[in-house]
Structure formats: C-alpha cells, structure tokens
C-alpha cells in the first residue's frame, strides 16, 4: 500500500508542477506580443493606488465581490475557504520537522476548521441546488464532493477510527526525503491520502490567479473614471 501511495504522491506532485510550468510557458509566449489590448484610463495617484490595493485585498480575503452579487451564498463560501486554508495549514505539521511555532499555534483553530468545513460545504450545496436551483458546474460538484470526502475521512481518523499521526508524519517525511517508510495501517489513511492527492491533481487554478484578476478589476474600475472624463 505504501508504494502505491508513494507512486500516487510523486505522480500528483509532478502533474501539479508540470501544470504550473505549462501555464508559465503559455504566459511567457504571449507576453509582449502585438495584440489589441484595450486602452485604460490614466493611472491613478499613489494614494488611490494604495486604496485600490486595499480594496483588492478585501476582495481576495473577504470575497467582497461575491457579497455584492450573492449575500446568501457568501457566508458558506467564505467559511469554506477560511476553513480549508486553516486545515491545510494544520496539515503542514506533517510536512515540517521541527514544526514552526506559527503552525503549532494554528493547530486548535485547524481542528475546529476541520469540523466546520463539511458543514460549510453542505451549506453551499443546499444554497446552490435547493434554494437557488441555478447553474452548478460539474467540475465544482466533483471538487466539492472530493473535499467533502477528504474532510469526512479526516474527521473519522481523528474521532472514531484513530490513525497513528506519528506514523503518518514519518511516512510523509519519508516521501519528501525520497526514503520510503511504511504507511500507517488501516484503509482510512490510504483513502484520505488518495483523496487529497486527487485534490492536488484537480486543484482549481483560480487559487493562484484570482488575486491578480481581482487587483486588475479594481484598477480597471478606478481607471474607468478617467478613460473618457477630464482629469
């Protein structure tokens, strides 16, 4: 089982990094080519630029644009994303030795987030599928199902069918150091690990690009005031 999980781990990491390199190459290729790039308004003053950055940070960390369009969905989406980040940070202890103080500090919050996460996902599904009955992409449904399953297996490992977390850490550090170690016993760890690897394979690209487009959108909004109006 350990070899299978290790193979899956290296495959997922390679695909993830390959995807990143591939995207970088596409951007590199298009950079500076002569295209019809629309003109925007004059650049704003440094003070206004600072405000624009603050607004974009608000959009990134508080999903301010989503509040504007869907305040019912917003709590679920925001709590889900915050919980997800906390859970990921909590899991960093498996990849780091010694564990940095900040990661250790976040452990209690990470545990709570681990329990909140599936409820946030249920909320999103209820809003999308039952209350609003609107478009729900197959990809997002797949992704949420994947995270929900990973989250449930994680909770089970912590509560009912406890897994040896020390053995899990040894296994993961072994993977990182290319010195394979035995995986913790029981199928639950394997299931959880595979689900997370699948998540790495299907990780949505917006996690990396949305902050840039949000900043762009705020800058565009600001420059719109000067595109045709007098200074």
């Amino acid at each position: 089982m350990g070899i299978l999980l290790a193979g899956g781990f290296y495959f997922a990491v390679l695909v993830f990094l390959g995807g990143g390199v591939s995207r970088f190459l596409i951007l590199w290729k298009t950079y500076g080519l002569d295209k019809a790039v629309p003109v925007r308004g004059a650049k704003s003053s440094p003070g206004t630029q600072a405000k624009t950055i603050c607004k974009a940070l608000g959009d990134t960390f508080f999903f301010a644009r989503l509040i504007r369009t869907n305040d019912v969905l917003w709590p679920g989406e925001w709590i889900f994303h915050v919980s997800f980040v906390l859970v990921v940070l909590r899991h960093a202890r498996f990849f780091l030795a010694p564990v940095p103080g900040c990661i250790a500090f976040l452990q209690p919050a990470g545990i709570i987030a681990g329990y909140v996460l599936p409820f946030a996902l249920i909320y999103i599904l209820v809003v999308k599928l039952i209350i609003e009955k609107r478009y729900f992409s197959t990809y997002n449904f797949f992704l949420l199902s994947l995270i929900f399953s990973a989250s449930l297996t994680g909770i089970l490992m912590r509560t009912l069918l406890k897994t040896d977390s020390a053995a899990a850490k040894v296994f993961i550090l072994g993977l990182l150091g290319f010195r394979l170690q035995a995986a913790p016993g029981g199928g639950l760890f394997a299931a959880h690990f595979m689900l997370v690897l699948a998540l790495v394979l299907y990780l949505p690209s917006h996690l990396f690009t949305a902050p840039f487009t949000l900043l762009e959108a705020r800058a565009r909004e600001e420059e719109l005031k000067r595109i045709i109006h007098e200074e």
Partner: peptide, 19 residues
C-alpha cells in the same frame, strides 16, 4: 492562445465556475 493577452489567459484560469 495567440489572440489573447497574458491578462486574459490569467482571467481564463481565474474563473471559479461559480455561475
């Protein structure tokens, strides 16, 4: 991608399919 600017390629990647 030859008709797109790098910004537009980033925009395509940024879509969350939220609907």
């Amino acid at each position: 991608t030859s008709c797109l600017s790098p910004r537009q390629i980033m925009e395509l990647d940024a879509c969350t399919q939220c609907g």
